[in-house]
């Protein structure tokens, strides 16, 4: 019981991260019908930009990043770093779309996919250069002390055990929830959201109806990148040992988020959120109850099963290809 509750808490936190990242995949896929391979690298950028800013700003506010006993930084510091990372990544997302993807708007999808892989490689390896983030892993200073919020005593196989719910997990779930609700509002309640949905439904018809398609696509990329940056920031909070930008953990993180988008039904915003939590549950519970070495395997097994049984995902609708 205690183990279950603890795993559930992790699932919620990790699931929120997957959901945030999956949203970016799903929005771009919904509109341009291709996998934005570079999306996971925006997450990486978000994490590394947060790290860099933290390292700069800590001395500025009189803190020592290397001293574990130094007092916790003020909350506004974390918030402003989050905002800075979000803004920076939105701009990068805009630039990528404008210069790498827009010229290929009419090209076969495979070409766009290859370009996206190229952009992804480029971001990873630029990031690894020594004048950027460097080629070695780094430890993110704690922006938030992981205060114990609740302690529940739950029965477990070896007698009662404590389940600790910490501030970091709650912060991750809370921030993600706020962002997702904001996105939901944006997509379903505002004019821009309506235009986005129209473009995703039929790009050409929307253009004919006078919707500024290019601008809407730019917004979509910026929005997706903003969420990815937030995910990167939160990821660095939870897992302070940051791997270098071209490390495979990032590729896997992106892949899992993409799997989440597919499982939820690609193109479907609510599906991406659902998919994020499903993936996290499979991964965390599989890791806990079966074997943690194979956690990535469970996720892909689920992906393959879903694609074979219900290719349109849990919440997606089947589209028949017109010939």
């Amino acid at each position: 019981m205690a183990d279950f509750a603890q795993t559930l808490m992790t699932t919620l936190a990790v699931g929120s991260l997957y959901a945030l990242i999956a949203l970016g995949y799903t929005m771009v896929y919904g509109i341009l019908k291709f996998i934005n391979f570079a999306h996971s690298d925006i997450v990486v950028l978000g994490a590394w930009i947060s790290f860099t800013l933290t390292r700069w700003l800590f001395p500025a506010v009189g803190l020592d990043a290397h001293n574990p006993d130094s007092p916790a930084p003020p909350l506004w510091l974390g918030a402003s770093i989050l905002i800075a990372a979000v803004v920076a990544c939105s701009l990068i997302g805009f630039v990528i779309e404008r210069f790498a993807y827009r010229p290929l708007r009419k090209a076969p999808r495979l070409n766009v996919l290859i370009t996206a892989i190229g952009v992804s490689l480029l971001l990873q390896n630029l990031g690894q250069l020594s004048f950027m983030f460097g080629p070695s892993p780094q430890k993110m200073p704690a922006l938030l002390s992981n205060v114990e919020l609740w302690r529940l005593s739950l029965p477990s196989s070896g007698g009662a055990r404590n389940v600790v719910i910490g501030l970091v997990d709650v912060m991750i779930v809370g921030t993600s929830a706020v962002l997702m609700i904001a996105l939901e509002f944006l997509v379903f309640r505002t004019k821009i959201g309506t235009a986005m949905r129209a473009v995703s439904y039929d790009l050409e018809a929307s253009a004919l109806m006078g919707i500024p398609v290019d601008r809407i696509i730019s917004y979509t990329f910026m929005l997706g990148s903003a969420l990815a940056a937030a995910a990167g920031f939160l990821y660095a909070l939870k897992y302070p040992g940051l791997n270098q930008p071209a490390h495979t953990t990032w590729v896997l993180l992106g892949l899992k988020a993409f799997v989440a988008a597919v499982i939820g039904g690609i193109g479907n915003v609510r599906g991406a959120v659902l998919g994020g939590f499903v993936i996290a549950a499979v991964e965390q519970f599989g890791a806990y109850y079966l074997s943690s070495s194979y956690r990535d395997v469970y996720v892909f097994a689920l992906l393959i099963a879903i694609l074979l049984v219900r290719p349109s995902g849990l919440l997606g609708s089947t589209v028949r290809e017109k010939v």
Partner: peptide, 22 residues
């Protein structure tokens, strides 16, 4: 047979990554 283009790319990529982990 069932997946096109980028979906297939993801499945094959996933296959390689799973094999790596295994």
């Amino acid at each position: 047979l069932r997946l096109r283009g980028d979906y297939l790319a993801i499945v094959t990529l996933g296959f390689g990554e799973i094999l790596r982990v295994v």
